[in-house]
């Protein structure tokens, strides 16, 4: 059920477009191409493998920001079905996250194209990637759970969340590296953002072959799952009354 909904969501996204499903691959490729041009030719950075660094961060951040912002409307946009048929409401935010997860997989396809283009051979620590993707998914889902039900009650949550996403983007090492801060305290503060840890570890393992410290890893894993369970708890608490509010 969840997968069927996720896939039909994905189909709907590219409905009416000339190239159809091709866009799911082309879109990230073109977008990453533009960013690469801008950041490597206009703004020079001293980060090693900067284009890949940039792309990797963006892909993962996109997954997070897309799934959370799409899930704001996961229940509201399905008002018709929700008010008519009973099914576990959890399906909706989960399907939304799976849709964006699939989109991310396509983007990783585009990323692979860039790796070949730059003759980059990833280190063995790339084996961490599946774990990181699971964490990213858990984290996104946890927040999506709360947002999907929260937006039913407070419709301005969608604007607030957009602002939070904008601000969040700059606390995460996407266009810069955490190393620009020489102050350990700032790094720790930045790590409070759960996405920071995941992307930082992704950078280190996929591009530079450095393993995360046990502390970093445990912290990120625990935080992601706490958010997942907390989000689900919020969802369960408020889900039953959503229909009456809708």
């Amino acid at each position: 059920m969840i997968f069927s909904i996720a896939i039909s969501d994905l189909k709907l996204r590219y409905k009416n477009s000339f190239l159809g499903f091709m866009w799911s691959f082309l879109e990230p490729l073109l977008m990453l191409g533009v960013l690469y041009l801008v950041f490597t030719n206009i703004l020079k950075s001293n980060i090693v493998n900067y284009p890949l660094y940039l792309l990797l961060g963006l892909i993962m951040w996109n997954m997070f920001s897309r799934s959370t912002s799409n899930s704001l409307n996961a229940i509201i946009s399905r008002r018709g079905v929700v008010s008519q048929i009973y099914f576990p409401r959890e399906v909706l935010p989960i399907a939304t996250c799976i849709t964006t997860f699939i989109m991310m997989i396509f983007e990783f396809g585009a990323f692979a194209v860039f790796m070949i283009f730059f003759h980059f051979i990833p280190p063995y620590t790339i084996a961490f990637l599946p774990l990181l993707l699971v964490l990213l998914f858990a984290l996104s889902l946890g927040i999506s759970f709360s947002l999907s039900v929260g937006n039913v009650y407070f419709r301005d949550l969608q604007y607030i969340w957009n602002v939070i996403l904008q601000a969040g983007f700059f606390t995460i090492p996407i266009i810069f590296s955490l190393d620009v801060y020489h102050n350990e305290a700032i790094k720790k503060i930045l790590y409070l953002n759960p996405v920071t840890g995941i992307i930082d570890i992704a950078h280190n393992t996929m591009l530079y072959g450095t393993l995360p410290t046990a502390n970093e890893l445990t912290y990120t894993v625990v935080l992601s799952f706490i958010i997942l369970f907390f989000g689900y708890a919020v969802f369960r608490k408020f889900e039953s009354k959503t229909i009456e509010v809708l």
């Binding site: 059920m1 069927s4 909904i5 039909s8 189909k11 709907l12 409905k15 009416n16 399905r78 008002r79 018709g80 079905v81 008010s83 008519q84 048929i85 099914f87």
Partner: peptide
């Protein structure tokens, strides 16, 4: 109420059926 106007009849049947 659960139909999506952008999808055709067959696709809507499938989606509706899935929700059922």
């Amino acid at each position: 109420a659960g139909f999506q106007s952008e999808l055709n009849a067959t696709e809507n049947i499938i989606q509706y059926g899935i929700f059922l």
